[in-house]
Structure formats: C-alpha cells, structure tokens
Nucleic acid binder design. Structure first.
Length: 213
DNA sequence: CAGTCGATTCACT
DNA sequence: GTGAATCGACTGA
C-alpha cells in the first residue's frame, strides 16, 4: 500500500527561506491552478533560482521597478512577467522578505486537467510537452499578469498553490547553469531538475539577438 | 524619446 | 540549426 500524496498546501514558512534551499525542495511537488475553466495540477520537474540584488541574471538586479515590485514583497506570492512580446512566466517569491529572490517554474508533468491543458496547448504533439518550458507551463495554466502578486499561501481556493506532494529524494536532483541567462549570471548552477524526467526542457545557452539591418 | 533586447516558442530548412 | 514573431520595460541621451 502506497500512501497518497499529501494535498496540504505549502505555507509561507516554506517559501521564507533562502531561494537556493527552496528551489530544489519544490521538485516533485504539486502545483495547482484553479482557473476559469477548471483546475489543473502538475508535478514540478524543473525550476530555476534567482537571487535578487546579488544576481546579475535576476530581474531584481537593478532594483525595484513597476514590473518586478512583487519580488521585493513577502514570500509565498507569485511574480508573473511578460516577455518576448507574447509569453508569460511564473515565479514564486522566496525569503527573506526584501531580498527579492524567487523561483522560476520551468516545467512539469500535468497530472490533473490534461484535457484542458491540451486545449490551451494545441501545438503540443505529446502530453509530456504540455508544460515543458516556462512559457508553455504558464500557457497551459492560463497564467498572465492578472495573477501577478497573488498570495499562493492564502485561502484554500486561491488561484495558485503548491501542495506538499511527494518531494523527490536528493539523489534524484540534478543542477546546472540556468537556461537563456546571459553574462555573469550564467555561471551559477542554479537550475534544478529531476534526473531523467521526460518533461524537463532542453538546456539552451543565451543567444544574443541579431541586429536588424 | 528612440533604441535595444528579453529567465521563449514555433515553423521551416 | 536558423530566423521570425511581437511588445513592454528599461536605458541613456
């Protein structure tokens, strides 16, 4: 007999720790999105840590702006940003408060609401691609800037939460450089994923944009 | 105020 | 593997 996964939501204490502790601890846990067309749940398989003002790769590196202000607030809230003119990415703010650190949710395995996710991700050829990449994950979950600042440790019916689930054993966690991060931020091995999981996105180094004629 | 570029994805060769 | 899509945020003058 196998014990059922723990459906209790993670509390603020979980996120109020250094981001490099929180990030790998999220792997294997269950992200729940309670959206307009029904709930979707996924098992987190890949994340990246961004460590605030210390971190040249972080949006918070140059201080607080209108876009990133949520990162400077309390842990356990979500930071959603818009990029490349068409995509959104989902982050959870980590502690301590004011440090402006956060975890980017990069990939997961959809475990509930697969039909709904397929509808939102028509270009996905396999279910393992439904949330393989940060913008794909946000698309499958219908996450956009309207959710920026949402408290994920709030009421039981909040639009986003992470359940305790079943964290993966430490020997299943891998780490390496972050994807698409440029400059000095690229040296840190702050991307974490579950070994051999088919839903983890491929690594790509940063590629500078070509100048238009 | 104009210029540059992005914590990406997709179609196509 | 290469290049386009697409727009808001940020930078520096």
């Amino acid at each position: 007999m196998i014990a059922a996964p723990d459906r209790t939501p993670l509390t603020r204490d979980f996120f109020d720790r250094p981001v490099l502790e929180v990030a790998p601890d999220l792997l294997g846990r269950t992200l729940v999105r309670r959206g307009p067309d029904g709930p979707i749940a996924l098992r987190l398989t890949e994340v990246e840590a961004y460590d605030g003002a210390n971190d040249p790769g972080s949006h918070a590196f140059r201080g607080e702006t209108r876009r990133n202000r949520v990162m400077f607030g309390p842990p356990g809230h979500v930071y959603v940003y818009f990029t490349y003119g068409m995509w959104h990415c989902l982050n959870f703010v980590c502690g301590p408060p004011g440090r402006a650190s956060g975890v980017l949710l990069r990939a997961g395995e959809v475990t509930e609401g697969v039909e709904l996710a397929r509808k939102r991700r028509e270009s996905a050829r396999h279910d393992k691609e439904l949330a393989k990449g940060p913008a794909r994950l946000a698309t499958a979950l219908a996450v956009d800037r309207a959710l920026d600042g949402t408290d994920a440790c709030g009421p039981a019916d909040s639009p986003l939460a992470i359940l305790r689930g079943t964290p993966v054993p430490a020997d299943q966690v891998r780490s390496g450089p972050r994807t698409g991060v440029s400059g000095d931020g690229a040296v840190h091995p702050w991307r974490f994923w579950i070994a051999d999981d088919p839903t983890v996105s491929p690594y790509r180094p940063h590629t500078p944009r070509r100048r238009s004629a």
